[in-house]
Nucleic acid binder design. Sequence first.
DNA 1: ACTGGCACTCAGTTCACCGGAGTGCCAACC
DNA 2: GGTTGGCACTCCGGTGAACTGAGTGCCAGT
Lengths: 342, 342
Amino acid sequence: MSEDRRLAVLRAIVEDYVATHEPVGSRALSERHSLGVSPATIRNDMAALEDEGLIAAPHTSAGRIPTDRGYRVFVDRLSTVKALSAPERTAIVTFLDGAVDLDDVMSRTVRLLAQLTRQVALVQYPSLTRSTVRHVELVALAPTRLLLVLIADTGRVEQRVVELPRAMGDSLLSRLRTQLAERVDGIRLSEVAARVEDLAEGFTADERAGVVTVVATLLETVVERHEERVVLAGTANLATIATDFIGSVHPVLEALEEQMVLLRLLGEANEALEGQRPTVRIGHENTVEGLSATSVVSLSYGRGEEAMARLGVVGPTRMDYPVAMASVRAVARYLGKMLAEQ
Amino acid sequence: MSEDRRLAVLRAIVEDYVATHEPVGSRALSERHSLGVSPATIRNDMAALEDEGLIAAPHTSAGRIPTDRGYRVFVDRLSTVKALSAPERTAIVTFLDGAVDLDDVMSRTVRLLAQLTRQVALVQYPSLTRSTVRHVELVALAPTRLLLVLIADTGRVEQRVVELPRAMGDSLLSRLRTQLAERVDGIRLSEVAARVEDLAEGFTADERAGVVTVVATLLETVVERHEERVVLAGTANLATIATDFIGSVHPVLEALEEQMVLLRLLGEANEALEGQRPTVRIGHENTVEGLSATSVVSLSYGRGEEAMARLGVVGPTRMDYPVAMASVRAVARYLGKMLAEQ
DNA sequence: ACTGGCACTCAGTTCACCGGAGTGCCAACC
DNA sequence: GGTTGGCACTCCGGTGAACTGAGTGCCAGT
């Protein structure tokens, strides 16, 4: 009993099951795939695969369905990330070009990915800490109130209202503005803290209270995990495949409404981008409660070599992994390219 | 046969049906409500209500359920918008206070409303055209590239990258900045166009090309319907009540993913705020395809007298209208108050 | 090592049956 | 005239028996 054929049988089972959503039996397999052996032989292989824990039968006289471990083997050893078709690639380009600002880019990207994969898509905003400051602006709203606007080179804009302990004159404001610009424009967000900690020293005792407040707000903006924003689309795709989820769509939808959960699903952005294969987390490998029947395919995107954030799709374990992986990779690449051009 | 009692029967039917989700019969009614008459009499009333088209029987020997018209009468004539309970009111305050910026306010508001009503909640961003300009800022990104940042008094920030036909010097840039600030700071967005149309006249022929580009981008930012942003939460609540929707949740989720649809659902913000009762659109009254089995309860919110945008909830026709209306009103009021303080 | 044959298992469907909830109507009552 | 109890009728939904068919596991033969 050759190892090769057994894996071929596993692949056939995964492919058929993903296509039909029904347990697949030995006869159907021998008819639809050219395995060159009879159903009886396939049954022997299936028994072996079942012993290995790669497939399972929902009940005695039904066909087999892949287990999470079966999908794992399929993803790791039996599938290649194929390229997208030409129409799909042009779809990506036409869909994403013409976005007017970062919000627009993100929302188009997530909808595109949902449409390509027919799954729920997630896209994380470019990480603030991994980008650089394009400009920091202070706008006077009232005598004791400023608006602090931080613009990152990815196009991302963060703003905070600053309540000053006392009024700040125009001249102080413009000096502060200049000083801030000198110190942080063009600097990586992660280094901003170090650059501004002694900023107040250049000001008189009178002025310091206001300056300190501004600096504190700036640090807050830079550090905060609020930076990690994730947008999501395609929840309607959950409904069509609801039958898979044992307890209906509810727990899944619920989990997906939590930003924290989305972040955990996507995982950490890794530094090296080149040659990355999408990360696939299958079923129980996923530690988020309520999502143990789903898989996540995700990948970092970024400019050049450097990862900025992640994007991916969430779907039932019996999703079409090759398509999902190909789409995720293609979209991540194009998005990275777009952000680099900005 | 008194009109009053017939309406009391209708009210009882609506209330019971909303509570149990099951057709309600005459016996159950006489037991659970003190109508003071026997089931037989109630049956007579029910027959009359059915003739009027306010209730219907799913089949011969079942109880009755309200029709869309029945809900209409219930909402218009039989229900008052009761005040929220004290814990609910404190929940609103604690939930919304501590938001750091407008995005945060919007996302907290929509989640709050979803939680209070256990429905899908919608909140529209404060309309740009109805607010005033707090500040317009130009940030040089590159010799031929500017970032135009428009900050509205609601805290809303819009940004656009401007590609200049030729490089713009520092002095021109700062003159342009000053001129812009003079003309539009503190002005209603709707009047910005009129204020800047002749801006280029104050510049030399050389300078004009750049100025015109900036002005054009500003107008685009101000006019665009892109301004109408709607956030949504609570889609998980759809799943628990999925049984109501004939064709499952799918068409509903799909419709809710379209921004345009959300806007149509919420409707136009009306000018007068005071004493407003939430607008209720019931079942087929709703023209959006795929949502003919849902109702929408919505209301304008704003600062002082003036409406800025709308918020509301979407749910099955058999939702608890009094609760939905009360929650929508309370949240709209508090949100208006918060934005006024900014 | 592969194959055909065969007995066995078990989900899902169909069908008939029954109980219960609810109605509509009628005759009696106040 | 409005209200009530009584009663025949309808029809949904649940239960259980019988049947079908897909699929398996195993064995003996090649």
